[in-house]
Design a protein around this nucleic acid. Structure first.
Length: 249
DNA sequence: ACACCAATAT
DNA sequence: AATATTGGTG
């Protein structure tokens, strides 16, 4: 819903869209964010994975990110339909809630559970506010990461900026920082592995030199395990016959 | 304070 | 191996 909303960005146009708000429920009339729209019984009956819990802070940050993202026009909006390998496996069909407008879906949330059965231990008191589940860098997520890093130069590609541009709800700066560190190691490994000690295959023009501008933004599109394709155990080795799928910007 | 980053821990 | 956390630094 509301995907057709255009933001009139004439220099800081802070006009409110008054007419739209006529007849709309006030904030008090709406179901609080903290409350699931579907009862837990129904969730269970239809095997629906509940939406992750979003605090008002989450929402505000998502809005903020959306705005920053809008300013960088060349980056296409991230389709978040399935970011994490969490729901839907073999089953096939699933219920799709329509109308997501901003990136979402990191396992993040909270379990919605009626306090009936005593599931948890006494450590519940502290557990409530603490750990998010560890992030899984799915191919989709990694692709987004790569796109953003490529979009910025390597110089500007720092965790906070990357995080903002990725615009993935629930993705933290630390998440990105960790991934970035690993990615840089990968890049370094690529450089050294290609430049030096090629003895036998010395003729390999690793210098697939591209025009200067793109040179800096050049990002090896594969390796790094995060490719869209599975590599089975027999497919070892460093073959790169990957189809260069994207590269937008 | 904050964010970066390398090292280190899980 | 992948991701998180820590601790030093600008």
């Amino acid at each position: 819903m509301a995907e057709e909303v255009r933001i009139t960005d004439h220099d800081a146009g802070e006009e409110t869209i008054s007419e739209w708000e006529d007849g709309l429920p006030t904030g008090d009339d709406l179901t609080p964010l903290s409350q699931s729209l579907i009862s837990s019984e129904l969730l269970y009956a239809f095997n629906i994975t509940p939406e992750p819990y979003r605090s008002i802070i989450d929402v505000n940050r998502a809005s903020q990110n959306t705005l920053t993202d809008l300013q960088h026009s060349s980056l296409t909006r991230f389709d978040s339909s399935k970011l994490s390998g969490n729901n839907d496996k073999a089953g096939g069909d699933e219920i799709v809630v329509e109308g997501e407008e901003t990136a979402d879906l990191i396992p993040g949330g909270e379990e919605i559970e009626t306090d009936l059965k005593g599931d948890d231990d006494a450590t519940d008191l502290n557990s409530r506010a603490s750990k998010r589940p560890r992030l899984v860098w799915t191919p989709q997520l990694h692709k987004r990461f790569i796109e953003v890093v490529a979009h910025l130069g390597v110089k500007n590609a720092v965790p906070k900026t990357i995080m903002q541009l990725m615009n993935v709800e629930g993705l933290s700066r630390e998440n990105v920082a960790s991934h970035l560190q690993k990615y840089r190691l990968y890049l370094k490994r690529m450089q050294t592995t290609s430049s030096s000690s090629d003895h036998h295959f010395a003729s390999t023009p690793v210098t697939h030199h591209m025009p200067y501008s793109s040179q800096q933004h050049m990002v090896p599109n594969s390796g790094f395990n995060y490719n869209t394709q599975r590599r089975n155990k027999f497919d070892s080795g460093s073959s790169y016959h990957h189809t260069m799928t994207h590269n937008n910007n």
